[in-house]
Write a protein that binds this DNA or RNA. Sequence first.
DNA 1: CCGTATTTCTTTAAGCTTCAAATAATTGGC
DNA 2: GCCAATTATTTGAAGCTTAAAGAAATACGG
Lengths: 164, 164
Amino acid sequence: MILDSETKAVELPNEHGDELRLWLRLLTCTTLIEGEVRGRLRERFDVTLPRFDLMAQLDKAPEGMTLSDVSKRMMVSNGNVTGLVERLVESGHLDRRTSESDRRVQVIRLTKAGRAEFRRMAAEHETWIADIFAELTPRDVRELMRLLAKTKGSAQKSASRREA
Amino acid sequence: MILDSETKAVELPNEHGDELRLWLRLLTCTTLIEGEVRGRLRERFDVTLPRFDLMAQLDKAPEGMTLSDVSKRMMVSNGNVTGLVERLVESGHLDRRTSESDRRVQVIRLTKAGRAEFRRMAAEHETWIADIFAELTPRDVRELMRLLAKTKGSAQKSASRREA
DNA sequence: CCGTATTTCTTTAAGCTTCAAATAATTGGC
DNA sequence: GCCAATTATTTGAAGCTTAAAGAAATACGG
């Protein structure tokens, strides 16, 4: 505690400085890795990161997903998904059809060509990620996973407090 | 180790699965927090996150920064900065002048109004961040800082290997 | 000096992204 | 069955972002 010339308690600008620094470091790490992955995807496959991410979601869902599902999973807006899907259908990577049970719903899935293309990219992508995290020990990885899970939980609670 | 029907070693699709999962979790955390901060900045101050980030850089540099400096610090492209600065000069938050010693260089700094506005936003922003990370203990924070520093180093080395 | 390379910034085209409003289809209460 | 509320998606406007190419100024080697 520091007292100023009038002997009143003064708050240093450091009250939550650690959390702020942590957030900036988290953001830096993500931006760095994201940029690296984006660059490699472009160089090697001439594909954008959002397209790759969308295809990754669909690869895990052979029966297809609705646009809302994709939107939630990717944590992006609905309108964003609409545009992404449009371009990927156009390029032949995705198949899109209206649900028969609910005509509001669009179900999308990878085409055969889209899946093959994605698998090719994903195999290399995995080696890039391994290289990027190469200096972390298995123990570091586990510990980071744990702390990030805790962070995610904390952030979600904070978010739900706000929307309430 | 798993052996297939021909008694040959088979690589499960899990060779680097841990790193991949770590990357996805890192990305999820960042996206979550970023969305939360963006939403609050919009609600409370009707400002975008990139503008806030740019002003934050300038607040730390009272003598001003060149556009290249900003570009490196924010890890975004030059063209991106040009546009951001344009809009912030337009709105009266930034002052921009050509360097006298090198006429290629543009030096930008916060105007008086811009600095006041930023300080107001930053004070609240800090409490949001504290709330978002509220469930982490001081020890968690320290440990995350350490592991993310290690991650950043690892990623930077990987990036420099590629560009070489 | 001169010319070439480098640095700094802007421009352009394409795509990504959000938010908010609009449209369309379904659900649920009465 | 009908109407209001809800849900799924699209649209439109604004802004963000990148990569690549170009313009202007400086640096530097010969």
